[in-house]
Design a protein around this nucleic acid. Structure first.
Length: 538
DNA sequence: GCAGACGTTGTGTTT
DNA sequence: CAAACACAACGTCTG
């Protein structure tokens, strides 16, 4: 072993891939230019600090484990391997920099507040130890910071405005995977302490694991992308609102979990889509097209990059202040698929079992939890999704919850999804319900979406009596959704008054607002300022 | 400052 | 059976 060799480190966080990975690519380029001078160590840090920041359910732990296993395989094919290190980055790096004689550290940038703080601290450590750090923006097609600059310092808050900005930006050059390293660049003396974790090490509650319908990893991501792209007619015609939320097999690509972890490059997927569309003169367009779906992701990343409180109502510049109420029993019923609304319950059970539900299914259950029926804060729903979704993504989860609760980006709060009617359009017989709420399997089409319409005798015949075999509905949608529209109207009025500083005609006593606990997350100092503003709402 | 157009994905009834 | 409309009416952007 040559003692003088310095080490080149690429730090994987998201971006768990070797294709189109500029920060990894850079390490390989530098290494190949002077193979006798360097060792190469691609690392992943199992950071226990992440658990203060977010909840990760068993299915997503498994997805991560599979992604790391695949990543190690990809790297070994390139004549290196994955080095997994356990601990907090700020505790680990000083020792690694020293022991490995690190010369260069590269990583992909991330806009999530936890990552921003973490990375700033690591940058500082690196600087103090003379380690050069290079970062690359490759998780999104467009750099959120650049989009904000091009919109004169503020993120665009409508999709159309966002489109107008990014249409003028140039597209990134998509990279292949790097060429194999020459022999001898892998340090020899490493034991198995850097092996990627086993399933048993990561999944603390194996009883929570559902079927492994969407295995993690770059190989599976690319396979899945190719499968989706194979039917070019389908790609060209794709319109998201026309796909079914309750088909038994997904009606969309299910590439979201792979994009979330960066097993698939959004930039590569975008490029491949553009190639196909160039051959298909008649094709759908954003916001409904497949490219449009990628751009929704970019949109939320851009706005979220400008607001550290993007996942909260308080102190969030984009979020309307709405007096949601704490209702633990209703929340619990919703989260576990026991609302008594079969369509809602089927969706929530599919989510818990499989870790993925269709976008429109998310609409239905999110509307139901918040402005539609239960009047519970979108933050509560966000937390449940955060735990259960394979594709959980900080910016997208928060952004979509604000959208659905009409707290930001979407404002037509009087458009309420019916937990009965919405699903019937694409699954009139209720096959989807029968799969995920099997106790209702014998219910006929005429009442499977509204089992309370069956008489007690019929319920016995169908082998499922409400109140004992399946819950009574916890609210009456026809009644509460109208009350909630009124509440939304009142809340919007108060927000307008705060915004304009004027009181409107016919102003009446406002509902008392009780602050609800925000869980583990500590309120940052930024919250305080807007709490003042929030007081004004009373 | 203001009117009008527009906004990925509502429902239920009428024509 | 698809399209149009009422429902009661939001915020953002543009000219």
């Amino acid at each position: 072993m040559t003692a003088q060799r310095r080490t080149l480190v690429h730090w994987f966080r998201k971006g768990l891939r070797v294709h189109d990975n500029p920060a990894l690519f850079q390490i390989f380029e530098v290494a190949r230019a002077a193979p006798e001078k360097f060792y190469v160590r691609p690392i992943f840090i199992l950071d226990p600090g992440i658990l203060d920041w977010m909840q990760v359910g068993a299915n997503r732990w498994r997805f991560l484990q599979q992604s790391l296993s695949d990543l190690d395989q990809q790297l070994r094919a390139l004549n290196t391997r994955l080095f997994v290190v356990r601990g907090k980055p700020v505790d680990i790096f000083p020792g690694l920099f020293e022991r490995w004689q690190v010369q260069l550290l590269t990583y992909e940038t991330d806009i999530e507040p936890y990552a921003v703080l973490r990375d700033a601290a690591v940058q500082q450590l690196a600087a103090s130890q003379g380690v050069k750090v290079d970062t690359h923006c490759s998780h999104t097609i467009y750099n959120p910071e650049l989009v904000i600059v091009r919109n004169l310092g503020k993120p665009p808050i409508t999709y159309q405005k966002f489109l107008g900005i990014v249409e003028k930006l140039k597209l990134p050059k998509v990279l292949n995977k790097p060429k194999k390293l020459p022999d001898g660049m892998q340090p020899l003396a490493d034991s198995d302490i850097y092996d990627y974790p086993t399933l048993e090490q990561l999944v603390k509650r194996p009883e929570d694991l559902g079927i492994n319908k969407f295995p993690g990893g770059e190989s599976e991501a690319l396979r899945r992308m190719e499968a989706s792209l194979a039917d070019e007619q389908w790609v060209a015609k794709f319109e998201k609102p026309k796909t079914a939320p309750n088909s038994l097999e997904p009606s969309t690509t299910v590439l979201s979990p792979y994009l979330k972890f960066g097993c698939l490059s959004a930039r590569l997927f975008h490029e491949r889509l553009q190639e196909i569309l160039a051959r298909q003169p008649k094709h759908s367009k954003p916001p409904v097209s497949l490219v449009g779906q990628l751009l929704w992701r970019e949109f939320y990343y851009t706005v979220a990059a400008a607001e550290p409180n993007f996942d909260r109502m308080l102190g969030n510049a984009y979020c309307l202040q709405i007096p949601w109420q704490e209702q633990p029993e209703h929340l619990e019923a919703w989260a576990h698929g026991r609302t008594g609304y079969p369509f809602i319950d089927a969706i929530m059970r599919q989510l818990r079992q499989e870790g993925w539900i269709h976008h429109l299914a998310r609409h239905a259950v999110a509307c139901f939890l918040t402005r539609g029926d239960l009047w519970i804060s979108w933050e509560e729903g966000q937390r449940v999704f955060e735990q259960l979704l394979l594709d959980q993504d900080w910016a997208l989860n928060a952004g979509n919850w604000m959208w659905l609760s009409a707290s930001a980006f979407f404002h037509q709060y009087f458009r309420v999804y019916s937990p009965v009617a919405f699903g019937k359009k694409t699954d009139p017989k209720g096959d989807y319900i029968k799969k995920y709420v099997p106790e209702l399997a014998k219910y006929p089409a005429k009442c499977i979406y509204e089992p309370w319409k069956a008489t007690l005798g019929e319920q016995r015949d169908y082998g499922c009596v409400l109140g004992s075999d399946y819950p009574h509905r916890i609210v009456n949608h026809d009644v509460v959704h109208k009350e909630n529209i009124k509440r939304m109207s009142d809340a919007y009025k108060v927000n307008r008054e705060v915004r304009t500083g004027k009181q409107e005609e016919g102003h009446e006593e406002e509902e008392e607002y009780e602050e609800h606990p925000t869980g583990k997350r500590k309120a940052s100092s930024k919250v305080t300022g807007s709490k003042l503003k929030h007081k004004l709402l009373k």
